[in-house]
Design a protein around this nucleic acid. Structure first.
Lengths: 202, 202
DNA sequence: TGTTTTCATAGACAGTCTGTCTATATTGCA
DNA sequence: TGCAATATAGACAGACTGTCTATGAAAACA
């Protein structure tokens, strides 16, 4: 509910934009994605329906913008963590843990929204950026043999993101175990042990 | 395009149902979920718009039914595999591998549809059944110490399903590596090794 | 065979949402 | 003060929905 014309034009427009995004998200959260209409968003945001079209083309754009805002904030958090001091092992652990926590916190509604936005071509915005962050973390870890090197890094990255994505269905205390499992998958295979099948990397 | 009245009434209705479902899916695949309307589905299926309402209440129901049909077929396949002869290790491997392959084959459109259907309350239909299958496989494996037992089985199950879900973004040859990673996460921690931090499970 | 039941159909209907376009009013800015 | 940008209510056509007819066609039954 932004006041009419608060201070400067630019800040006003930004305030209205955010009010629209928040209203849309809150409607989606409460009544489901399908129930979000331009008219309801406008009402909830406290503006006229006609006005909303000067900010967004359709409902999807609104939710996509909201989503991007969230992602940006999360990415900032994760990036800061990735650049923090500490040995590679613990940095990797803390970043992956933080990601899992984010996923867990946004709950079951998160994937739903993300998937709906997927198709809108906004795919580049979120997962790809997480992937890039993970890759920057994993490459040196692979080189220094802290993470198995018998695998394409692409696969490692997708594995991490998806495995930790399970946090969306887990309670907060399950997340620790999930992180442990995921990290265990990354560890280099112990050499000279495990006399079963595929010892050679094929 | 089912012929008018083929043989018996029941088989006719089944044929029409499937024609509707297939038409809806093909529209969704081609033009996106949002573009699927009852009118277009009816036209594509070769029936009148009014008729379609005697089979399905709305677009979501149609896609949900299509999805369920696919899932059922896949689950049958996986279940057969799970009950096949062989040691636990290789059965687990083949079932997980088969699941990953299914996910990879349905491509990037799969998660999109599944997520949209999620919210419709159809959640019970697919993931839960996969989870149950995985659980039946994992519990004895945990008991016989072929899979780590320091973790809630629930977490193991979610981990498996999500990690293998990464196959949706991978090419077919990446799937092998993904399976390897996932299985590595499941293996019991080697006792008495790894003198780093968390040696005790705590 | 004729009768009855089941189904498909076209068309109409009100209701909702969309996207656009007015004319008018308000506010910031120079 | 005047100009440019914005917000607004209202109107509008178009699309989709869900329901309801009346009509006809095909199948099932006796």
């Amino acid at each position: 509910m932004p006041k009419l014309w608060d201070e400067t034009v630019e800040s006003h427009r930004r305030a209205v934009r955010e009010a629209i995004e928040d209203a849309a998200w809150s409607l989606a959260e409460e009544h489901g994605l399908r129930a979000v209409t331009m008219a309801k968003v406008a009402t909830a945001a406290g503006i006229a329906r006609a006005t909303i079209y000067k900010y967004f083309a359709d409902v999807e754009s609104i939710l996509a913008a909201w989503h991007e805002r969230q992602i940006d904030a999360h990415l900032e958090h994760l990036t800061a963590m990735a650049e923090a001091a500490g040995d590679r092992e613990s940095v990797l652990r803390s970043v992956l843990g933080a990601y899992a926590e984010i996923v867990a916190r946004r709950g079951p509604h998160g994937p739903e929204l993300a998937a709906s936005l997927h198709r809108a071509g906004e795919h580049q915005g979120s997962e790809a950026q997480v992937d890039e962050l993970l890759r920057r973390l994993l490459v040196p870890a692979v080189d220094s043999h802290q993470v198995r090197n018998d695998m394409d890094v692409d696969v490692l990255v997708r594995y991490c993101r998806h495995a930790l994505g399970a946090a969306s269905e887990l309670s907060v205390d399950g997340v620790d175990g999930l992180l442990e499992l995921t990290l265990a998958g990354l560890r280099p295979r112990p050499v000279g042990r495990e006399p079963s099948d595929e010892t050679t990397t094929s």
